[in-house]
């Protein structure tokens, strides 16, 4: 290290640093740590306890004043329904759905409840160009229909295929999704309706960080029973709703290919480039114009030439 910082040493350091940063890129497999809202609430879903009674669906329907479904919530034939060879999903009249999975080698089916997972860093929120979504300190991802334009980017962005659109309405369409019963319950510290309705204690409401501990303890205490993974701890940057399963998660419909970083991370490559273009392009292209379009040959001005040589 030279004792004096010269232009040369700065340049050398800068170039070496840039090359090093290009060659030795940090391993990006580590999960993204989201520090905001440490005390936010969540729900731990234990698939081993769910019996597919659909009480949660019924409770949700009543709590959110949704229209009565074609088949009553006691009708279990709906498990075989579902369009395009896929399981049932949320739609404009259903915020949560229980699906049945027959896992080979298992003598009983498994049931999995889906609803909004209330991500730590929600893709729907970060992709919304009118900021219609809010992640509340309590953990809920809520939606403001008053500013929504109906572009449906949130539905593209949601890695869990949760937000749905009220396509049937011409004059009052909106995004429909689970809001963690925020308005009626969560705001007042109460668990959502589905959790309260569950007769099997398959759903546990609590602080997300406590739920992770409970989940890990269940895994440790029952090594043969559970997969050694809590779905939602890291997926898409972490979710408020967490899942425990007795079989590999992909066998009960979970997407195990999801990145462990928030969805926003894959967009950041582009977003980081925007200010550069905005600041560099004007000078760069005006410069090109000046370079490309000198019309007259240089006037023979001896003084200028001498000065340029002298520089």
């Amino acid at each position: 290290m030279p004792d004096k910082i010269t232009r040369r040493s700065i340049l050398k350091g800068g170039v070496a640093g840039s090359i090093a940063s290009l060659l030795f890129r940090p391993k990006s497999s580590k999960a993204h740590q989201i520090k905001a809202y440490q005390n936010s609430m969540g729900v731990l879903v234990d698939l081993t306890r769910c019996v597919g009674c659909r009480s949660c669906e019924a409770a949700c329907n009543a709590e959110q004043n949704m229209p009565e479904p074609a088949k009553p919530f006691t009708d279990m034939s709906v498990f075989d329904e579902g369009a395009h060879g896929h399981k049932r999903r949320t739609d404009e009249t259903t915020l949560t759905v229980v699906n049945k999975y027959d896992v080979p080698g298992l003598d009983h089916p498994l049931f999995r409840k889906i609803q909004c997972n209330h991500c730590q860093e929600p893709a729907c929120l970060t992709s919304c160009f009118v900021a219609a979504y809010t992640k509340t300190p309590e953990g809920a991802v809520i939606y403001n229909a008053d500013v929504c334009v109906g572009c449906r980017t949130c539905m593209i962005a949601c890695p869990f295929y949760i937000p749905t659109f009220k396509y049937s309405s011409a004059f009052d369409p909106k995004i429909v999704k689970c809001i963690f019963c925020y308005d009626t319950r969560l705001k007042y510290g109460q668990p959502p309706a589905c959790v309260e309705a569950c007769p099997q204690e398959a759903l546990t409401f609590g602080k997300r960080k406590d739920l992770l501990k409970i989940g890990r303890r269940r895994i440790v205490d029952n090594k043969d029973k559970y997969e050694d993974h809590i779905y939602g701890e890291f997926e898409a940057g972490g979710t408020s709703w967490l899942y425990l399963s007795s079989v590999p998660f992909e066998k009960v419909g979970f997407d195990m290919t999801l990145p462990h970083q928030p969805i926003l991370d894959s967009v950041k490559n582009f977003l980081g480039m925007v200010p550069m273009v905005l600041t560099i392009w004007p000078a760069l292209f005006t410069g090109f114009h000046l370079l490309a379009t000198r019309k007259e040959p240089h006037a023979k001005d001896e003084n200028t030439t001498k000065q340029e040589v002298g520089e």
Partner: peptide, 26 residues
């Protein structure tokens, strides 16, 4: 295609989701 076409100018005048790519597109 927009669900609420009458709200097209919303990202310009009503509510700003400045971090979104679509905001930039709009």
């Amino acid at each position: 295609d927009l669900g609420m076409p009458w709200r097209l100018p919303y990202p310009m005048v009503v509510s700003f989701g400045t971090g979104a790519v679509l905001f930039l597109v709009a």
